[in-house]
Design a protein around this nucleic acid. Structure first.
Lengths: 201, 201, 201, 201
DNA sequence: GATGAATGAGTGTTCATTCAT
DNA sequence: TATGAATGAACACTCATTCAT
């Protein structure tokens, strides 16, 4: 891993734990093993380290979204199809992906007092996830897997426990295997339950 | 309002928007209209401004808790009783109370990188609320208003949409009347729906 | 003891341990049990607390000097006369007097970086003591108790061990009874020895 | 001289005149001609400037001690040998060495209210010098140059005038050539006198 | 006599950044 | 590529002092 990557890697790691503003260039450099002035060869300033991380995140996240939508339309609309796509794309490749999880933690921390960050936080941690769940529900409704209804409230009923569990297990403390397992169990149980109640088979 | 109260008021306002660390004594003083050194007549240091705010919050929050529990045992266990107590104590006097809401925002922001703050954040924004909902559910189960079941999951099903709506409408952006109304509508609808589905009358 | 005396007393105590500059008005007031602004009713400013202490010291010290000279001329010039006067006036009432000792410690500490203090330090801790010893020697020479010689070097030979012992036992650490005893023993032994060597009877 | 050395040099100079605490980073920087923040490139904090000076001092002082002991054992135990070693090592290279003298002044000033400083002050300005004189006396006694006796009092008799002269000429006011000359004359005269009286040849 | 409230000047220190090498 | 050296702006905080009450 070259120096630029090391800086990005270390920065993300520290940002995700303490927040962007709480971590100084000094802190990062001490960890990476370079002098502070060296950072400015690779990056215009501190902000652009964060920008680079956010850019990489949005690329990955957009890929995930495409893959998700493809997965959804490719399936025959069965419950297990929808479930698998959500679990694989949204859970494994997004919420629990080491890189994505860290970037989202930064967003979570820095959304306050940083307007740009709040915008992308809302986009990627509130709106997009809800939209994902919404499109799953709609797909399943279209295919008659679940009964129709107030689709917005349906999405909330479906998503909010996941949001709750994610905050509890994936964005609080370390992202350990134990926490990931705890999240999977809770979330999977909820999803099954949800579809059972909704009349799914 | 005397200077000490002005400092507390202004500090809370700024802390709630930008976080404790991001707000400097300079910032506060500029807003209050005093010189920086004057702060140290009223407070030992920056931290003790926050401490005072937290203390006041815990007093209020504990009062709310007592009132809540009294309200719950006083009622006859009807749906509207439980609902009213939750709505009045937990929603109006706690989540949407101007002072409490601001203090909780500070906790929300400063939980990262501040161990003490994380502790009280967990207590007052995660554990206590869940415990409140849990005791409402239990009360209603005991009185036969709703059917029994996996009480933990029940509590999550009940609380997580509220948690989601609170994050969306009450702890993001300004606490405007519009946002409060939006929260009330969403939350009340959810509660009614929840009890309807659970078999409540 | 009224407030003014309490301030003087406490100030001297703290000045003698840590130095004038190192002790703040805050520190003194905390100890005395008054508010900082109250000091300025009794004293013009911080400096004038010290001035008052120095004034009282010089009065006492000058008294000691008069008493010393009287004692010297009243005696018949015997060794024990000279010894007793020195021991009583210079040792007991001056070097080991609680008040004087503390003021001299302040001088000792504050002589650096404070020209006025250095002047009175030199006067009262170097010149005057040496002059005292010098006049003792001269008196004893005049009365034939000891042999004449280079009176300046004689005074140094006589005084410097006392100066050394005083620094070691009376101006370093606390002025305990143990330290005072240790000083007396060393100093008395030296004086006896000195006069023995000088041919005294 | 590079900036770091300039800072050390200027700091020592000011510390020796006014004391460590009385000199601010601002003062030093104004003198050196740099901005305050620049100091923190070369030193972790204010204390570590002093630490560096103390470290250099102890190295030099320890060297002096070794050289002194070697000089003492190399000589044939004649008076002039002992005298020369003391004069050269202890007087010239230690008490009157510009650097060492300044550091000792800092110790002298800062011993009050700074426990660490008091420790090293005691070591290097009280214990070590007395120990040096003691070993000279012992060496000369062993070689029969002077008569034996109460070795502790002997050391005090020998050392205390030097201590007195040093305080008067070397650690009070500026360390000018005049003062150094005055010290040498007084001290040398004392030493010769002392050994004459002790029966030395 | 005493104090509540305020303040200007100063303290040591951190930070992101620049620039010549 | 990397760094040695420097800096302006900001930071929380302390201090002696003033003055109306």
């Amino acid at each position: 891993m070259n120096t630029k990557e090391k800086i990005l890697d270390t920065s993300l790691d520290m940002f995700a734990r303490l927040g962007y503003t709480a971590v100084s260039i000094r802190d990062i450099c001490k960890q990476v093993g370079i002098k502070e002035s060296s950072v400015y060869y690779h990056f215009k300033n501190k902000q652009s380290i964060l920008d680079e991380l956010i850019n990489r995140f949005t690329t990955i996240a957009n890929n995930m979204m495409s893959q998700f939508e493809n997965g959804l339309t490719d399936g025959q609309g069965s419950f297990s199809d929808g479930f698998n796509v959500v679990a694989d794309c949204f859970f494994e490749q997004y919420l629990m992906d080491e890189f994505c999880n860290k970037v989202m933690r930064v967003m979570l921390i820095e959304q306050f007092g940083n307007d740009d960050m709040r915008t992308i936080y809302k986009e990627w941690l509130l709106d997009k996830p809800l939209q994902i769940q919404s499109s799953v529900s709609k797909a399943l409704i279209n295919f008659g897997v679940i009964e129709s209804g107030d689709s917005e409230y349906l999405a909330v009923k479906y998503y909010s426990p996941i949001y709750f569990y994610a905050n509890k297990w994936l964005f609080s403390g370390e992202l350990t295997e134990e926490n990931k397992t705890a999240f999977r169990e809770s979330a999977y149980k909820h999803i099954q339950n949800f579809f059972m109640e909704m009349g799914g088979k």
